[in-house]
Design a binder for these strands. Structure first.
Lengths: 216, 216
DNA sequence: GTCAAAACAGGCAGTTATGCCGGTTTCTTC
DNA sequence: GAAGAAACCGGCATAACTGCCTGTTTTGAC
């Protein structure tokens, strides 16, 4: 499962196995820029993602940066791909590690818990900023939406192929999946207002709900 | 219920019952500016909320705007108050209208449905933009967070006073309340990716879950 | 009617980011 | 090792906002 899903999401950044040194160098500075851009996103939202900041933070000159990413949106696009890839990777790393030897009925609850953990990461925070900004920034949306749809399709396809034993309940499982994704994102955004305690409790409640829906 | 809750949230904008004409005039232009600012938010996110745009859209001169709101953040603060007030008002208008004559067991599900409708409004869209921006904008957060907490406290207090029959299950009801709020926000943000159908189905599922949690 | 205060108007300097461009250094190829 | 390509550098003009400031008009109190 993990190989196929990750391969399908692999961004240009990490795809190349560089043989020539210039390619390595190029890839390295691109990665540094993307990482800095993610820092910008996390700290300042999509507004805070500026070419200046990204260059300065990564120690790359503005000229070099412009060589790799001609415009701000080019950089943002690279970040989008990177973040989607990492979003899936982070979840899979956790989930596949906890799921070994679990019986069928627990898979969903383990998956929910792993998803909640994967959501509390720097990369997911960046993803949230992009997702929100894409709603009001047409140009970003042209980059973000296709990537999001691709991610979603890959996810669903693999879920169906990986759990043939749930064939009769795929529709419900997909629905539960969507519920978990939506609720976790909502919890993240309400964290500051609700506070850690309530957030954690709702998280546990959701896991229990997932169990209930599986049982029924 | 509705009076107390709304009174507690009443923003400066609408609080005054103007007797002198200058006050009326002043209040009117302030309202026009706030409304335009909300349009800015909805269309361009917090980034798109600029003093220039707000002034231009409302037909108010930059000078006049500066007279009422010295800085961009002053305008944003007025929008925050306005949006929180309207958020509660929109919900109550809907909820109190649908709830008449309902039996106790249906109140939660009616409330959930009403909340889902209240969330699909221009005002709530503006609220979401503010909530997200406040996470990465310290200055905005200083305005937003207190307002959000006040809203939350008023909400909880009134819920407890309004439903004394649920005394033994307040903790659970508060939890369910948080779950609904978080999930609805998450659904909104995933609307474009998931599409209307899935969103609607998850919404229905959530309503059903709320019913299940009440029954148990 | 007059005078102060409130509401309104629009210009100005300063900041910050953007995209582009001419020039330099570092690799790669032959 | 020389030519060409790729990576890198920092300056420049431009654009969008912001906050402030000097006036002008409209209201309201006496």
């Amino acid at each position: 499962m993990q190989q196929r899903m990750l391969e399908a999401m692999l961004p240009a950044d990490l795809a190349e196995r560089p043989v020539r040194w210039q390619q390595q160098k190029s890839a390295r500075t691109r990665q540094r820029l993307v990482e800095s851009a993610i820092d910008c996103l996390v700290e300042g939202g999509f507004t805070g993602l500026t070419t200046q900041q990204a260059a300065e933070r990564s120690g790359v000159s503005r000229g070099a940066m412009h060589h790799h990413f001609a415009t701000r949106m080019d950089l943002a696009a690279a970040v989008v791909d990177h973040v989607f890839y990492r979003r899936m990777e982070l979840f899979l790393d956790d989930y596949l590690g906890t799921v070994v030897g679990a019986n069928d009925g627990d898979l969903l609850e383990f998956g929910t818990a792993a998803h909640w953990r994967s959501v509390q990461t720097r990369e997911y925070a960046a993803y949230v900023e992009l997702a929100v900004a894409a709603r009001t920034d047409a140009e970003l949306n042209r980059v973000f939406e296709p990537a999001a749809r691709r991610y979603d399709e890959v996810w669903i396809t693999e879920m169906i192929e990986s759990f043939p034993q749930w064939q009769s309940r795929w529709d419900k499982m997909k629905l539960v999946n969507d519920l978990v994704i939506a609720t976790h994102m909502g919890l993240l955004l309400n964290r500051q207002v609700m506070g850690e305690d309530r957030i954690a409790q709702v998280g546990k409640l959701l896991t229990r709900v997932v169990g209930m829906l599986y049982e029924e």
